[in-house]
Design a protein around this nucleic acid. Structure first.
Lengths: 139, 139
DNA sequence: TATCATTACATAGCATGCTATGCAATGCTA
DNA sequence: TAGCATTGCATAGCATGCTATGTAATGATA
């Protein structure tokens, strides 16, 4: 089993389970992470805007946002100009875990890549980026 | 978003969706692939033996096997010595797609890594293997 | 040998990803 | 401006991963 596809799946699960463990105390789960990070950077985006920044499908994000709302991480307000859309806002609870969330992500990356030398890590990251680029028609 | 964890997740999804597309005509899905490959190599394993060879949890495999049985890819027979266990056997239908399944996997790997030079591919694979190794306590 | 621990597998419940589809609000155009 | 196409989001249904737990068969031991 050293098919690249198999390996990639396995590596991704290493990151996901490592992150899950670390952020569990914060009351969040890995799937919420990308949305959370974007909203930390820029609050009040619409779902469509978020989809544009997070490589997941709209339906996937809709479900994730529903869970985040359920979990008290976000609230939604009516869009000032388009009543089909809603703007998404972090709650106090979400803002409060910001620093620890970043730490958890860094710690996870550090831990999973602990077996690689600094040079290797850079290569690894570059190769993943290059692979994604090459498969992304609109880049 | 160039966190290694994020990139790894993205790359894994590239492989999964590429494979899914290619094997859809064969009547199988990506999650069934690892089990299928093992059974191609060695028919009649028990679930426990399969779990030992496929880095997924027992419960995950149990569900995958249930779907494979439902889809007519495997049958199960009583274990000659232990009536808790059952041996797992590929059906004719599954054996018939063997070659095309291997091709689909190879094509997918080829396509996803098309943007990398041969050297880079080797490095990429080696780095994923090294990462998995380093995170695998029983290796 | 009766009892308790272990083992093999199944099931429940959840998160996260997808495609397909529905619905209501917008927007364009005849 | 009426009508149709588009857009923003939600929902349905499924696969695949997980943890936790249930069940039945084995096995080991008092």
């Amino acid at each position: 089993m050293h098919s690249p596809g198999y390996l990639a799946n396995h590596v991704a699960r290493l990151f996901a389970s490592g992150l899950q463990e670390r952020i569990k105390p914060l009351g969040i789960v890995p799937g919420q992470f990308p949305a959370l990070l974007e909203l930390f950077e820029r609050d009040g985006l619409t779902q469509k805007e978020l989809v544009g920044r997070l490589d997941v499908e709209q339906a996937t994000l809709a479900n994730t946002l529903a869970r985040m709302e359920r979990d008290g991480l976000i609230t939604r307000r009516e869009h000032p100009a388009d009543s089909r859309a809603r703007t998404i806002h972090l709650t106090e609870k979400a803002r409060a875990i910001r620093e620890r969330a970043y730490e958890a992500a860094n710690d996870t990356n550090e831990a999973v890549l602990a077996g690689l030398a600094p040079d290797e890590r850079r290569q690894f990251i570059a190769l993943m980026q290059k692979t994604i680029q090459a498969n992304n028609p609109d880049a």
